[in-house]
């Protein structure tokens, strides 16, 4: 298990990086944390390629808040996002989900942006971005484009990044007051990819009733799947016992596949159980966060 021969560049600036990527076209691949790429290389599932190592672009190692978004730069390691002091208040779901990402040693090197670009349907970060309706900032030597989460994930391990492009940032909408998030997953061993996982978001109105409920699912299809469960819960009180209805709705709407760890039927069942658990957590958080901003902004960029 050793990687094939590789070409390698290590640009010292973003401009250099983009120029290199532009020159290389389809041969160029970005190396950031490498926690998914390097094992694929070692197993020789990935072809020889030209790696463009962006680890010198220290300017991209940021977690900040601006314009109602949490901005995560391409070189921010999972551990840094998790440790960031602004995350718990601005977007608590990030921290909740990051705790399920592999183990600390992987989080110390792996990047949140890389995980999203890698688009593993069993990974937590793509589902979180999809649920929140976040945005991916993609640069080329010639310019910039912003891609919404809904358009970003194309298939298993496929995201909308074209040859010559570099994802420099992902943006997670800040969680408004009166909204809450929850995350629940079942994995075979702690730290493994999820057998099934659910990220949930609930927004309450000023009467403390559920106004909006959404959930995103991992490991149930080729891409993160976002369901609007509002129909099952709209108008329900914040201590709702109607969560099972939302769970039932989720079970109806998703069509997972079986694999060596779980049958499709079990996955579907789990999706229901975890929907309820994640919604319950979201509901509690929404109550705690009050409803001062109610009505003025939706929870995230609603898809």
């Amino acid at each position: 298990m050793k990687p094939p021969p590789l070409d390698y560049s290590r640009p010292e600036s973003l401009t250099d990086a983009l120029r290199t990527l532009a020159d290389l076209g389809p041969d160029g691949k970005v190396l950031a944390g490498g926690q998914s790429l390097v094992p694929l290389l070692s197993m020789r599932l990935a072809e020889p390629m030209h790696l463009v190592d962006i680890n010198r672009l220290a300017d991209l190692a940021y977690v900040t808040r601006a314009d109602g978004q949490v901005l995560v730069g391409a070189l921010a390691r999972h551990a840094e996002v998790l440790a960031s002091s602004l995350v718990p208040a601005a977007q608590p779901l990030l921290a909740k989900a990051l705790r399920f990402v592999a183990h600390p040693a992987i989080r110390n090197r792996g990047t949140t942006v890389g995980s999203i670009v890698h688009a593993d349907p069993a990974a937590e970060m793509p589902a979180v971005l999809a649920l929140l309706g976040g945005t991916v900032r993609v640069l080329t030597a010639g310019g910039e484009r912003l891609v919404g989460a809904r358009d970003f994930f194309l298939g298993v391990l496929e995201s909308d990044v074209q040859p010559g492009e570099l994802v420099t940032e992902v943006r997670f909408p800040v969680l408004p007051a009166g909204a809450g998030t929850g995350f629940a997953e079942v994995s075979r061993r702690r730290g493994d990819y999820a057998v099934c996982g659910v990220a949930a978001l609930i927004a309450l109105n000023d009467r403390q009733e559920i106004e909006q409920a959404r959930a995103a699912y991992l490991s149930v299809g080729p891409c993160p799947r976002v369901l609007d469960l509002t129909e099952a819960l709209a108008g329900a009180p914040a201590d709702s016992d109607r969560l099972p209805a939302a769970a039932a709705m989720a079970r109806e709407l998703i069509h997972p596949e079986g694999d060596i760890h779980a049958t499709a039927e079990y996955r579907r069942h789990l999706a229901g159980v975890l929907t309820e658990r994640a919604l319950l957590e979201a509901l509690a958080e929404a109550r705690d966060r009050g409803s001062a901003d109610f009505g003025r902004q939706p929870a995230g960029n609603a898809p």
């Binding site: 075979r188 057998v195 760890h261 779980a262 049958t263 039927e265 079990y266 069942h269």
Partner: peptide, 11 residues
Amino acid sequence: LSPSDLFELRR
């Protein structure tokens, strides 16, 4: 016996 197996046994 995995959780999926136990789920199947229950079913």
